[in-house]
Nucleic acid binder design. Structure first.
Lengths: 349, 349
DNA sequence: ACCGCTTGCTAAAACCATTTAGCAAAACTG
DNA sequence: CAGTTTTGCTAAATGGTTTTAGCAAGCGGT
């Protein structure tokens, strides 16, 4: 196999056959390491292999698979499409659920291939083959940015697709009930006496996180009659959150409560708060979202409005299979209610 | 598209064509949503779609792709194979590096598809199509258990493969220098005065983690002339580690230093130590491995022997491309030296 | 000179979907 | 009513690989 940069046309076994003066069948036998049982002489085999290398032969998987397919077996290709920038535990969770469902449906004449493919956030439309309909039978799409959502809304998917975490017209979506996470976290902070709450978010807002920020602001406005301060971090990494919040605290702005739209941001927030010499929750309370299993291992344990990811996945996977089966999808949209876990980080007095 | 359980033979567009009394061409046009421009009547289109559903048609992607392929374009399919049980950040890192390399090699007549596929730890051999050679042009395999390693050692890969994190005869491997992580962590603990060190590991030991445990034990034996205590956790989740270590501490066994072969275990260890009323590092020092970016956000920050993952990935990806190009791989094995980050968790006095 | 065996290969079919060129009938135009 | 256009479809080729059946040549034996 080779990636010759110069080669003009694609090299097939026919080219190799011509090059070495043999038949495609012989070439195929050699390249599939079947030359012994097919009685191709070792000398010819060597010539074929050498030709393959010098010509820069790259096997065409489509051709191979087409032929290799047992006539009574169909393969169904499923994928989870997510952005590189996304929190991974969710994706892994989703894949595991998908694999499990696939395993359950696997039988003598149906088998599945499931995988993860990633795109750069905001550039989903550049992903090759997404709309060709010759790669997947079904996909679950998650962690998209508004630019991606726009693309999805305008796209015509030629196969089963479920969108996780946002609402896209014309596609099947599973998402958390909008409003709840942001509003409840505002309530939680206000209830324990916070008067100067802050929300930490990344620069790139997905629909879900944007909704969380907005709902939080609304909640604070209603409860305190005051604007919540939103702090934008460069990205979702703890270091960015720490830097941003440290900057805010060092400017001596009042701050007695933090809502982080992502748990990785909460990690950074904890660090910023402790380096500022403040204590959680007495000086500053913190609420997170629950992407990771880690929340209860924060010190002190982090209160979360569970991102409802497992629940969303639990809905999305069967929905995808219903679409695959061609069942007229009664439900185009499934809403999932996040649950609230109150821990030390919001416990005062 | 449907997954009819009863259907005997695979349904193709020919079956549909026969069923509705039309030609395969017409059926194809309809199913590809091309029926308008191909002037298939809406009525016929409806009949075709209905037939597809009732017969349970599942498109054969290989057939589709074969035909759809632009004649001067070749697609190269790369994948990272990892177990479900693995720490994901590493995998994401690897995928990102792979994608980047692929993007760099993409041109007018070569394009790449990269993805992650997962297997159940210890059951890699059950993954369908792994040895058929009709799915991938190249793979990076990581997070295998001994059972998987055994399989890999006996397998004949018909395509480019690089193994990450362990040594397998006959395959190209990239791994951390054995011995270093375990030995250095033993040294670090001993140097700051630990006399009763403990190592925490999961029940399922990969080659890398087994090596770490063994080297740690050797290091302790040599330095202190005493056996290190190894505590086995049910899995790698923080909760398991916390439970295991709490059990150990509550039995009042002396313990003044912990080495965790995985960072998720360190998370649990921190919890166990603080609930036991001990302080890090004064009562018990902790060393981890650095799988996550999170180490410096532990409180106190965790000393790590960086798992060398980025370095391993940085070696593995170019190696894979060299294999793809058919370059006679000079290097069958690349060793990477992990670097040491000493932080608060091992700083005394 | 003929039979049977081995060696080393080839021809052709098969896998499934898509597309291009074109055909027959119907509908319209003058 | 002949000529043209439109409608609605079909036949056949194409894509790359693998496999099955079988052919031709050579060799040993009689």
């Amino acid at each position: 196999m080779g990636l010759k940069p110069g080669s003009k046309t694609v090299v097939t076994i026919y080219q190799i056959a011509e090059y070495v003066g043999m038949s495609p069948a012989a070439v195929s036998s050699v390249l599939a390491n079947r030359h012994v049982e097919r009685r191709i002489s070792e000398e010819s085999a060597k010539r074929v292999r050498e030709a393959a290398r010098t010509l820069g032969y790259v096997p065409n998987m489509a051709g191979r698979r087409l032929r290799a397919h047992p006539p009574a077996m169909r393969q169904i290709d499923l994928a989870i499409l997510t952005s590189f920038e996304a929190p991974l535990p969710i994706v892994s969770q989703a894949l595991q659920a998908l694999q499990k469902a696939a395993d359950a449906e696997t039988n003598a004449h149906t088998r599945f291939a499931v995988g993860i493919e990633m795109f750069h956030a905001g550039r989903l439309r550049e992903k090759p083959g997404l709309l060709d309909g010759n790669r997947y039978h079904g996909v679950i799409i998650t962690n998209t940015l508004p630019a991606d959502d726009e693309f999805l809304a305008s796209a015509q998917f030629p196969y089963a697709a479920v969108v996780l975490g946002r609402r896209i017209p014309n596609l099947c979506c599973v998402l958390e009930v909008p409003d709840v996470v942001g509003r409840r976290s505002a309530e939680v902070l206000v209830e324990i006496g916070c008067r100067h709450p802050v929300v930490l978010h990344g620069r790139m807002l997905t629909q879900a996180t944007a909704e969380r920020v907005a709902a939080f602001k609304r909640g604070i406005q209603e409860a305190l009659g005051r604007k919540a301060i939103a702090l934008e971090c460069a990205d979702l990494r703890p270091a960015s959150a720490a830097m941003t919040l440290t900057g805010h605290l060092s400017r001596r702005r009042p701050c007695d409560g933090v809502f982080t739209v992502t748990d990785s941001l909460a990690v950074g927030a904890y660090r910023a708060i402790s380096t500022a010499g403040k204590r959680i929750p007495h000086d500053i309370a913190v609420v997170g979202v629950g992407d990771y299993e880690l929340a209860e291992f924060f010190s002190p344990p982090l209160s979360t409005l569970a991102g409802a990811n497992d629940a969303m996945v639990a809905q999305a996977v069967p929905l995808l299979f219903r679409l695959l089966r061609g069942e007229p999808e009664a439900t185009r949209e499934i809403l999932v209610v996040p649950s609230v876990f109150l821990r030390e980080s919001t416990r005062r007095g």
